[in-house]
């Protein structure tokens, strides 16, 4: 198989700075997004994902400028997410230089947005981000539910059905975050990943829980992920992107080295 699996470092940004929380709380400052994006790109990152966790209007302006600055220096695909609610928001980010946008909460409240956006801009630039949490009890068969607002609000929507519906509406890719695993450094939720990946035709980006390089391998091999996303293991210098790609290649995964 010639197509390489992708490593995607994720920049969670607030007010123009890269931050990283544990289970969406307890935020640590990790630096300037443009510098970091450029460093990751030079180190062989296959894509960059930029998630804006700023809520204020002023913060959004900063985000647009940051996206413009990254896009002017980083010549690999750039996905921008966080607070994307309207067709206009999507257009703004694409015009700023994003190649794809990730839609999360807005897709839940207005699924037609995904349909309209993919019809207008093409499926290739519409990523549906979903935050899923295991809701089945011990002994029951696995079941995951979609949560919104950074994982705070349950929706009652089954994660597998939701993924299938979003693909039918035109999502070109799914960014799947496990709420149970995010920030724990205990590995991806492999059962969740596998279930979603096997249920849809589009690529899946596994997210949430990477603590070491074997977790990335497991995400691809056991979680059937097409791409793996990680933040803190790269931000705080535990591993470089090259190390990660080299390790995955040694384990027999096709990588772009």
């Amino acid at each position: 198989m010639a197509l390489a699996k992708r490593i995607i470092p994720c920049l969670d940004c607030e007010k123009g700075r890269v931050v990283k929380g544990v289970k969406f709380l307890d935020i640590r400052d990790a630096g300037d997004p443009v510098e970091i994006a450029k460093r990751y790109c030079d180190a062989g990152a296959d894509e960059i994902t930029f998630l804006d966790i700023t809520a204020s209007h002023e913060g959004r302006e900063t985000t647009v400028h940051t996206v413009e600055a990254i896009a002017g220096q980083v010549f690999i695909p750039l996905t921008v997410g966080g607070g994307i609610r309207t067709i206009e928001d999507i257009r703004t980010m694409l015009n700023a230089g994003a190649d794809k946008v990730a839609i999360n909460t807005a897709a839940v409240f207005n699924p037609q947005l995904v349909r309209e956006a993919s019809a207008r801009f093409g499926s290739q630039c519409i990523v549906v981000a979903m935050d899923a949490k295991k809701v089945s009890a011990e002994g029951e068969s696995d079941r995951w539910e979609i949560f919104t607002h950074g994982g705070r609000k349950p929706t009652g929507i089954d994660a597998i059905e939701w993924a299938q519906r979003m693909v039918e509406y035109g999502a070109g890719e799914i960014l799947l975050t496990s709420m149970d695993k995010d920030g724990t450094k205990s590995g991806f939720d492999l059962a969740l990943n596998r279930a979603i990946s096997n249920a849809v035709s589009v690529p899946i980006i596994a997210s949430g829980g990477v603590g070491n390089l074997q977790d990335l391998v497991d995400g691809v091999v056991e979680g059937h992920a097409d791409a793996v996303l990680a933040a803190s293991i790269f931000h705080f210098g535990e591993f470089t992107i090259q190390q990660a790609k080299q390790y995955m290649a040694e384990k027999g995964i096709t990588m772009r080295l």
Partner: peptide, 22 residues
């Protein structure tokens, strides 16, 4: 209606073809 693409060895391939290829 739903694209099904397999490699000769039977591996299921995702569509769109997205990522870095030779």
């Amino acid at each position: 209606a739903k694209p099904i693409l397999r490699e000769q060895d039977g591996e299921l391939l995702k569509v769109p073809h997205m990522g870095w290829n030779i």
